[in-house]
Design a binder for these strands. Structure first.
Lengths: 336, 336
DNA sequence: GCTCAAAGTTTGAGCGCTCAAACACTGTAG
DNA sequence: CTACAGTGTTTGAGCGCTCAAACTTTGAGC
């Protein structure tokens, strides 16, 4: 018809013989429109191929209908896969809730990151942010709270329970508990923990995972002399540690690892050591664990992502509701 | 001062004693503004903490200043890490060029994906899209071209050179060539290729990688009886294939693999087979290859991402320039 | 028959920015 | 002294949408 470019609310309205606002209502508040009108407008929309303009809506509502999440500079190891799955989960859940997902490059430090987030929020590019990889000494949550920026963390506010915010996390202790139970069922009794340096010292992901292992052993009456070793999250380092362990007096018959990276190292050490190799359980259920035939604790990343979106949308609706934290149960992936 | 919410172009203008447009010019066309005025406006901007409103700009310019990229549903294996790096590279290069990166969840099929992209572009959420994982029978490029959607592919238009579009890719044949040269230097002569089913049949990533291996062997005068095996991109399958190969009459002393996933399988088969294990070279330089002590061809993902952004920004400036394809050299990562 | 609420619809204003055109002011040339 | 180009700045209009308020219509209730 008219050569007036893409359809707008007005052009659709003209075609349907109604006003601009009625078309808008058909889209956003169908209940306010009479059924007959609604159908007529719907037809006009279809015929004209109308797409609402996001920027115009954003400008009028002052909402970006988008959330931001950090694109990690680089992966620490094998577990990076988890992040891809998280991105996909966010994008999917976001789409279902009319939220787009924006990626911002990891800034040099936390202060710069807070500034980046500030920028995104204040230019109207995003309404909120999903924080990943939170830790005990993380300054981001406090800063964001201060500025009134809406956010949801993937990870608990370790040691900062007095400054509550929305978060979702996987219950790592349940995961290592499942691992121990599995190993007990296989008949193992000397079940070691291979974790990260510092696990157990202060609240953290590692401490949590170690705790699950310990409690499961105690529940089985095996809490006496536990075997508890550490390595940085590097499979070569882990291999060295486990090699030492296996040739020492404390050789375990099974090892629960805090990550698949560690598990890979442990697995290689086991292969290189004569004698009955210990059974190894990893954490994150990456393809590597599957390829090596290792059991591994799987984090339901997709669920976490969906819950983050749920918390954010609920926060948009009720900005003043109390902060909420959600703990998700992992499952143990067995080798096939 | 005034309780009139966040600063706008008008509020800054009032503070600086100039007009709205002058403030805008200071930001977008500094050359049009006298130096003294510029300074005064800059001060006013600083004092008021002014941030330009993105939606308003988008509405006025009809440009989203954003590009979209697909969040993969799930990883095919170990090489997923590459995608994370790509996301980061895009986000970083995008930021440098005033482009935000939007993630859309992988739709069920290519048709749905084209529709999703259409939606993003026509609602003004994104100006262009970066296509990943392109293949010979990929219908997305043709559809996007038809609709006049701006895009850049990570991956060559395998077999569709007659329908040119902007792309960036890693020269896989150079990568496998480097791998062969490395193995030759180590004294190996029976250098096998472990690739994907179909490699060599029609133009594809796998065919390209296989070609590099073959040409390097031929260049060394070893092109006579080559050892060329295939497996789906699954390390268990690869392990079986290589196990058979190593116990057969054609046992190689080195294997060039089309992916680290295959390399992992090959590595496990080598460990399980008595005798001198073959040297294995992977592709993608994931942490797994490093952990296993395997050499692996590294794709300069960050560079690819930056080049994609370059092509897109140049396309925005010159919509009608001829399509351009850029091939990037990979490097061989040696075990430490 | 008149009032009044409920349901449905339209109107006016404005979100914050950019574009194009109009305007003021300098200084130089004829 | 006037014309005129060049520089710097302002004005008007509009991008496409949503909000709130105003308006119209309908039908029930007395």
């Amino acid at each position: 018809m008219a050569v007036s470019g893409p359809a707008t609310l007005d052009s659709v309205a003209a075609r349907a013989g109604v006003s601009r606002q009625t078309v808008s209502n058909v889209l956003r508040h169908p209940d306010r429109v009479a059924e007959a009108t609604r159908q007529r407008v719907l037809d006009a929309i279809r015929e004209s191929g109308y797409r609402p303009s996001l920027p115009a809506r954003q400008l009028a509502t002052r909402r970006a209908h988008a959330i931001a999440v950090r694109a990690e500079r680089q992966q620490d190891g094998i577990s990076g896969l988890v992040l891809d799955a998280f991105y996909h989960g966010l994008a999917e859940a976001g789409q279902d809730n009319g939220l787009r997902v924006l990626l911002y490059p990891q800034p040099v430090d936390e202060a710069a990151e807070v500034a980046t987030i500030d920028e995104l929020v204040h230019t109207g590019a995003a309404d909120a942010v999903v924080l990943t990889a939170t830790s005990a000494d993380d300054e981001r949550p406090a800063h964001l709270r201060e500025r009134g920026t809406t956010f949801c963390a993937f990870g608990r506010p370790w040691g900062h329970e007095d400054e509550p915010h929305d978060w979702v996390d996987v219950d790592g202790s349940v995961g290592t508990g499942l691992a121990v139970d599995h190993l007990l069922a296989l008949g193992h009794r000397r079940i070691a923990y291979l974790g990260w340096p510092g696990d157990g010292d202060q609240p953290s992901t590692g401490t949590d995972r170690r705790g699950g292992w310990l409690r499961a052993l105690e529940a089985a009456g095996l809490g006496g002399a536990v075997i508890d070793v550490r390595s940085t999250n590097d499979s070569a380092a882990a291999q060295a540690v486990v090699a030492g362990l296996l040739t020492g007096p404390d050789a375990p018959d099974a090892i629960v690892c805090a990550s698949d990276t560690l598990a890979l190292g442990a697995h290689r050490a086991a292969l290189a050591t004569p004698g009955d190799p210990p059974t190894i359980v990893g954490f994150d259920a990456t393809p590597v664990a599957a390829a090596l035939g290792l059991a591994s604790v799987a984090q339901p990343i997709d669920e976490v992502a969906h819950l983050c979106i749920d918390l954010l949308t609920s926060r948009f609706e009720t900005p003043d509701r109390p902060a909420r934290g959600l703990l998700v149960r992992p499952v143990l992936h067995l080798p096939t």
